Structure formats: structure tokens, C-alpha cells
Lab assay of single mutants.
Amino acid sequence: MPEGSASLQLAVGDRVVYPNQGVCRVSAIDVKEVAGQKLTFVTMRREEDGAVVMVPEGKVLAIGVRKVASAE
């Protein structure tokens, strides 16, 4: 991610809310080559049905992904 860009610090195992998809758990953060460029992807699995969603790390905030609020 370019320096100075806002990002959401995620780790494998974090629970997040993905708008219009529901609650997901981060299952992987991997670098993949797409069209000759190396990009970091956040892979999330929906808790409702296990569907897998992959989002480029740089788009996580723009999409509206946020961490699940704690009970505290």
C-alpha cells in the first residue's frame, strides 16, 4: 500500500463487517500476482454460509469493511 494511505490493520482471525455481505472472518492475507503486478489481498470467509470474498488490501476501507465492535 502506498505510504501515507489510510488502511485498516487486519490480521488473520479478525472478525469484520463487510457491507451487504455480513460478518466475515479474515482467513488469509496473501500477495498474489495479477496482470504482472504483485498485490496484497485480504481473504475473508462469511460466517453465515462460508462464502469466500477476496479484496485488494488497498480497497478495504473504500468498500467500507470495518472491525466488529467489541462488547466493551
Rank of each mutant, 00 (worst) to 15 (best):
Arg46Ile: 03
Leu10Pro: 01
Ala69Gly: 13
Asp49Ser: 03
Lys59Asp: 15
Ser27Cys: 01
Lys59Asn: 12
Val26Gly: 00
Glu57Ala: 14
Asp30His: 15
Met54Pro: 02
Val12Phe: 01
Glu3Tyr: 05
Gln9Lys: 14
Ser7Met: 12
Ile63Pro: 07
Ala35Val: 04
Ala11Glu: 10
Arg45Glu: 08
Ala69Val: 12
Ala6Arg: 10
Pro2Trp: 07
Val55Asn: 03
Ala69Ser: 13
Glu72Gly: 10
Val34Leu: 06
Val12Ile: 10
Ile29Ser: 01
Ala51Asn: 06
Gly4Ser: 13
Leu39Asp: 04
Pro2Asp: 11
Ala51Pro: 02
Asn20Phe: 09
Phe41Asn: 00
Ser27Trp: 14
Lys32Cys: 03
Val55Lys: 02
Gly50Arg: 02
Thr43Ile: 14
Ser27Tyr: 14
Val16Leu: 08
Thr43Arg: 05
Ser5Met: 12
Lys32Phe: 15
Phe41Arg: 02
Thr40Asp: 00
Met1Ser: 13
Ser27Pro: 00
Ser70Tyr: 10
Val23Cys: 00
Arg46Leu: 03
Met44Pro: 00
Glu47Ala: 03
Pro56Ser: 10
Gln21Cys: 07
Gly13Phe: 02
Phe41Gln: 02
Lys59Val: 14
Ala69His: 10
Leu61Gly: 10
Ala28Glu: 06
Ser27Gly: 03
Val53Gln: 03
Val31Asn: 04
Glu33Gln: 07
Asp14Cys: 01
Ala69Gln: 12
Ile63Asp: 15
Leu10Ala: 01
Val42Gly: 00
Ala71Ile: 12
Val52Ile: 13
Val53Asp: 02
Ser7Tyr: 10
Gly36Ile: 02
Val42Leu: 08
Lys67Val: 14
Glu3Ser: 11
Tyr18Cys: 08
Asp30Ala: 09
Pro56Tyr: 08
Asp14Ser: 03
Ala51Tyr: 10
Glu3Gly: 12
Ala28Met: 06
Pro2Thr: 12
Gly58Asp: 15
Gly36Thr: 02
Val23Ile: 14
Ala62Asp: 11
Asp30Cys: 07
Ser5Phe: 12
Ala6Met: 12
Val53Gly: 02
Met44Ile: 04
Gln9Val: 11
Ala11Lys: 14
Phe41Gly: 00
Arg45Gly: 01
Val34His: 06
Val17Leu: 14
Ala71Met: 11
Gly50Gln: 04
Thr40Ser: 07
Val42Phe: 08
Met1Leu: 12
Val53Thr: 05
Ala71Gln: 12
Thr40Glu: 01
Ala71Arg: 09
Met44Arg: 00
Gly50Val: 02
Arg15Ala: 05
Gly50Ser: 04
Gln37Phe: 08
Ala71Asn: 12
Phe41Met: 13
Pro2Met: 12
Arg25Ser: 06
Pro56Val: 13
Gly50Asp: 07
Asp30Pro: 01
Glu33Ala: 05
Val16Cys: 00
Lys32Thr: 07
Ser7Glu: 09
Gly4Glu: 12
Arg45Lys: 10
Val53Ile: 15
Leu61Asp: 09
Glu57Ile: 15
Ala6Asn: 12
Thr40Cys: 01
Val34Glu: 06
Val60Lys: 02
Gly22Phe: 04
Ile29His: 01
Asp49Trp: 04
Ala11Trp: 06
Thr43Gln: 05
Asn20Glu: 09
Val12Pro: 04
Ala51Trp: 15
Val53Glu: 03
Thr43Tyr: 13
Ala69Tyr: 08
Glu48Met: 12
Gly50Trp: 05
Asp14Pro: 01
Gln21Val: 15
Ala35Gly: 14
Arg15Thr: 08
Val31Trp: 06
Arg45Ile: 15
Gly50Thr: 02
Val42Thr: 00
Gln37Ser: 07
Val26Ile: 14
Glu48Cys: 06
Val26Glu: 00
Ser27Ala: 10
Leu39Pro: 00
Lys67Glu: 06
Gly13Arg: 01
Gly13Val: 02
Gln9His: 11
Ala62Asn: 06
Val42Glu: 00
Val68Gln: 06
Ala71Leu: 10
Glu47Lys: 02
Glu33Thr: 11
Ile63Tyr: 08
Gly13Asp: 02
Lys38Thr: 09
Ala51Thr: 09
Ser27Met: 15
Ser70Phe: 10
Arg46Phe: 07
Lys67Trp: 08
Lys59Tyr: 14
Gln9Ile: 10
Ile29Glu: 00
Gly50Phe: 04
Gln9Asp: 09
Glu72Tyr: 08
Gly50Cys: 02
Lys32Ser: 06
Ala6Asp: 10
Ala62Gln: 13
Arg66Asn: 08
Val52Leu: 14
Ala51Phe: 14
Pro56Met: 09
Val17Thr: 07
Val55His: 03
Ile29Cys: 00
Cys24Lys: 00
Ala11Ser: 12
Ser7Ile: 13
Phe41Leu: 07
Met1Gln: 13
Val53Phe: 15
Glu47Cys: 03
Asp30Val: 14
Leu39Gly: 05
Arg15Asn: 03
Val55Ile: 13
Pro19Ser: 08
Glu33Asp: 09
Val60Arg: 03
Val65Met: 08
Val16Ser: 00
Val53Leu: 15
Ile63Met: 14
Asp14His: 02
Lys67Tyr: 10
Thr43His: 06
Asp49Ile: 03
Val12Gln: 02
Glu33Arg: 06
Arg25Lys: 07
Glu33Ser: 07
Val53Arg: 03
Pro2Ser: 12
Gln21Phe: 15
Gln21Pro: 01
Pro19Ile: 05
Pro19Gly: 14
Gln21Lys: 14
Ser5Thr: 13
Glu72Ile: 14
Ala62Pro: 07
Gln37Pro: 01
Ala28Ile: 04
Arg66Gly: 07
Gly36Lys: 03
Asp14Lys: 01
Val16Glu: 01
Ala35Ser: 10
Val12Lys: 02
Ile29Asp: 00
Val31Lys: 05
Val65Ser: 05
Lys59Ala: 13
Pro56Ala: 11
Ala28Arg: 11
Ala71Phe: 10
Asp14Thr: 03
Val34Cys: 01
Gly4Phe: 09
Val60Thr: 04
Val68Trp: 06
Val31Tyr: 08
Arg46Glu: 01
Val16Ala: 03
Val34Thr: 05
Ala28Phe: 06
Val42Arg: 00
Thr43Cys: 02
Lys59Ile: 14
Glu47Leu: 08
Tyr18Thr: 05
Met44Lys: 00
Ser70Gln: 13
Gly13Cys: 00
Lys38Ile: 10
Val34Phe: 09
Lys59Ser: 12
Gly36Asn: 05
Ala71His: 12
Ser5Ala: 13
Glu72Lys: 09
Pro56Asp: 09
Val52Asn: 04
Val12Trp: 03
Ser5Trp: 10
Glu72Trp: 08
Arg25Glu: 07
Glu72Phe: 10
Val26Ala: 01
Val16Arg: 00
Ala35Cys: 05
Val52Tyr: 13
Ala6Glu: 11
Cys24Ser: 01
Ser5Gly: 13
Leu39Cys: 01
Glu72Ala: 10
Cys24His: 08
Arg15Ser: 05
Ser70Lys: 10
Gly64Val: 08
Val68Tyr: 07
Ile63Asn: 09
Val68Glu: 07
Ala62Ile: 11
Gln9Trp: 09
Arg45Ser: 06
Lys59Pro: 06
Glu33Tyr: 13
Ala35Gln: 10
Gly13Tyr: 01
Gln21Ile: 15
Leu39Phe: 10
Thr43Lys: 05
Gly22Ala: 04
Asn20Arg: 08
Asp14Ile: 04
Arg25Val: 14
Tyr18Leu: 13
Gly4Asp: 10
Cys24Leu: 10
Met44His: 01
Asn20Gln: 09
Pro19Trp: 07
Ala11His: 11
Ser7Thr: 13
Arg66Thr: 14
Arg15Lys: 07
Met54Tyr: 10
Val23Met: 09
Ser7Ala: 12
Ala6Tyr: 10
Met54Trp: 06
Ala71Cys: 11
Arg66Ala: 09
Asn20Ser: 11
Gln21Thr: 06
Ile29Leu: 05
Ala35Asp: 14
Gly58Arg: 11
Val55Thr: 03
Pro2His: 12
Ser5Gln: 13
Ser70Asp: 13
Val52Arg: 05
Arg66Asp: 07
Asn20Lys: 09
Asp14Glu: 03
Leu8Met: 10
